[in-house]
């Protein structure tokens, strides 16, 4: 069953995130993705996420579609103007990608090309609206299209570290939902503790909320996130648990699986984010009984 059908049926959605290579070696991407075939509803392909220049999401998405794996392509506004964005959206449809997440982008100053000129011709809400316009057979300037594309469109909830920031993120998400997004993807959740609060605060959005579950790969990462992200809810107990574990990698997988299980009752789905450990995705799915 396709991602769109399962989303419409309000089934629990399971997504996995996979990055394109910084280069042209696609073997890892294709191999890791092929191991997920039939086990996830779709693979999410970020574009130049975290500000790292890499192969475009469009190419990555098409590659996986060719392998028979449904993909969701990220689009955002930092690097492309309205013409390039619309052109890519049309190309994506023609090449078999029908799912788009309009994502927040890392600021250019934090990218690996910090001297580049940011574009930001449209904002995320305008991009979602313009994708809707394309679906109605027009471009942003009102010119007719020769055949219109069809997309499912999701949006992201911007990261937040305080209640004030969360309120701003929710306001932006509401605008994006009003503009045409049919589901929302949250910032990373690191453990079971973060689940209920986030779901409580996002339930009024009125669309499926897909929670991003982040795989904690090491004690150092857990400590770093706990110290640098005030809203991360990585408790001392969790850090102690990882430290005491005889197999910390496995412990991280178990924590991710527990988080997924905790989300299963009330979330619209999960997006599993492993940032470089995509080969561990089958283990996480196994541990989460998915």
């Amino acid at each position: 069953m396709s991602f769109q059908t399962r989303l419409a049926a309000k089934d629990f959605i399971v997504l996995a995130e996979m990055h394109t290579p910084k280069g042209i070696n696609i073997s890892r991407l294709v191999n890791d993705a092929s191991r997920l075939k039939g086990r996830v509803d779709a693979v999410v392909i970020p574009d130049m996420d975290n500000g790292i220049m890499r192969m475009s999401a469009l190419a990555g998405g098409v590659l996986l579609q060719q392998q028979g794996i449904e993909t969701i392509m990220h689009m955002y506004c930092r690097d492309r103007n309205r013409m390039a964005l619309q052109g890519d959206a049309l190309a994506a449809h023609v090449l078999g990608i029908q799912n788009i997440i309009v994502a927040h982008s890392t600021d250019m100053s934090e990218s690996d090309h910090s001297d580049a000129k940011p574009v930001n011709d449209l904002d995320e809400t305008e991009l979602i609206e313009s994708l809707g316009t394309l679906q109605k057979g027009k471009d942003i300037s009102g010119f007719d299209l020769d055949g219109s594309p069809d997309f499912s469109i999701g949006c992201t909830l911007a990261p937040f570290s305080s209640d004030e920031e969360l309120a701003a993120s929710l306001t932006a998400a509401k605008a994006q939902i009003a503009a045409g997004a049919t589901y929302v993807v949250t910032p990373p959740i690191y453990s079971e503790e973060g689940c209920s609060e986030l779901l409580e605060k996002t339930k009024h959005l009125g669309v499926p909320v897909i929670a991003t579950v982040f795989l904690i790969k090491s004690l150092a990462i857990a400590q770093y996130i706990a110290n640098s992200e005030p809203g991360a809810k990585i408790s001392d107990d969790l850090i102690r648990r990882i430290r005491k574990s005889s197999n910390r990698e496995q412990e991280g997988i178990k924590i991710a699986a527990e988080t997924i299980l905790a989300l299963k009752e009330n979330a619209g789905g999960v997006l599993i984010q492993t940032l470089g450990w995509e080969h561990k995705l089958p283990d996480i799915l196994e541990a989460a009984k998915l």
Partner: peptide
């Protein structure tokens, strides 16, 4: 060479 836009408002 390609211009460094940081000083031109590229970094906010």
């Amino acid at each position: 060479p390609a211009k460094d836009w940081r000083s031109g408002g590229g970094s906010g």
